[in-house]
């Protein structure tokens, strides 16, 4: 799992620089979830649904929200029970919690957003195997209180959803020249007005619509993030001159 990747330097930095106020913790969680430790872009978790259902914004949004709900639910539950669960059975317990939430979400989607449920197909039950969820349960929720865990779940879920939607938008625009095609499946009939036809295509660029397009698009999004990080780092490099005190091995 992703323990080693999770909570990287940004978390350290933030907590080192400031007092451990709750506000700072929330800020750190936000930053981690949306950017510096984004489950899709940095941890590269949950790629299977990410790549499979990001054909349109609607599908992406649907799966993203489902994942987010599961994440919040599982994080809160895991955080609440963390003190009662011995470490050797924590993974089965986490999995059970997650599976329960996924099943609940699946049932609700089946009942209330049937069209979307049909469109997303197998990928809703597959949320169970989305490593991002158990990763957060293990790396964060099992060590923090439920409020913070809920925020963490929300932010991670949001980060995941945003990437999913971005990828969905890219593929939808390039592939068929529209946005929010089929939004009514998710949001009800009024949402047909959301559909934007950017340009009419005689021949959809099938590459974007098909799974290879998802891989290529994902590659570009990750590259873009790395590029931005690189630029920011370059900008910051000049003003971070610190000198670390050298430890003396011997008495002098």
């Amino acid at each position: 799992m992703s323990e080693s990747i999770a909570d990287t330097d940004v978390a350290d930095e933030a907590s080192a620089e400031t007092t451990n106020g709750r506000f700072d913790e929330v800020r750190t969680l936000t930053q981690n979830g949306l950017w510096s430790n984004n489950p899709a872009l940095v941890q590269l978790l949950g790629l299977c649904p990410l790549l499979a259902v990001s054909g349109t914004v609607t599908n992406a949004l649907g799966l993203g929200i489902a994942t987010m709900l599961v994440l919040i639910g599982s994080n809160v539950t895991v955080s609440l029970v963390r003190n009662f669960v011995p470490s050797e059975i924590r993974i089965p317990v986490f999995v059970m919690v997650i599976a329960t939430f996924v099943t609940l979400i699946e049932l609700f989607m089946n009942a209330f957003t049937y069209g979307l449920f049909m469109a997303l197909g197998i990928f809703i039950p597959l949320i169970v195997t989305n490593c991002a969820i158990i990763g957060r349960a293990e790396a964060y929720a099992s060590k923090n209180n439920w409020q913070l865990s809920a925020i963490d779940g929300f932010m991670m879920g949001l980060g995941f959803t945003l990437v999913l939607v971005l990828l969905g938008a890219m593929r939808e625009i390039i592939g068929q020249g529209t946005l929010f095609d089929g939004a009514e499946l998710l949001l009800g009939d009024w949402a047909t007005v959301l559909r934007i036809e950017l340009f009419a295509v005689d021949y959809p660029l099938l590459l974007a619509v098909l799974p290879p397009g998802a891989f290529i698009g994902m590659g570009f999004i990750i590259a873009g993030k790395n590029w931005i990080d690189h630029k920011r780092e370059q900008r910051n490099q000049t003003d971070s001159v610190k000198k670390v005190e050298r430890a003396r091995v011997t008495s002098a």
């Binding site: 021949y203 660029l205 099938l206 590459l207 974007a208 098909l210 290879p212």
Partner: peptide
């Protein structure tokens, strides 16, 4: 391959 799967008609 990109062309083939993107523009099967052409």
């Amino acid at each position: 391959v990109v062309l083939l799967i993107s523009f099967p008609l052409q």
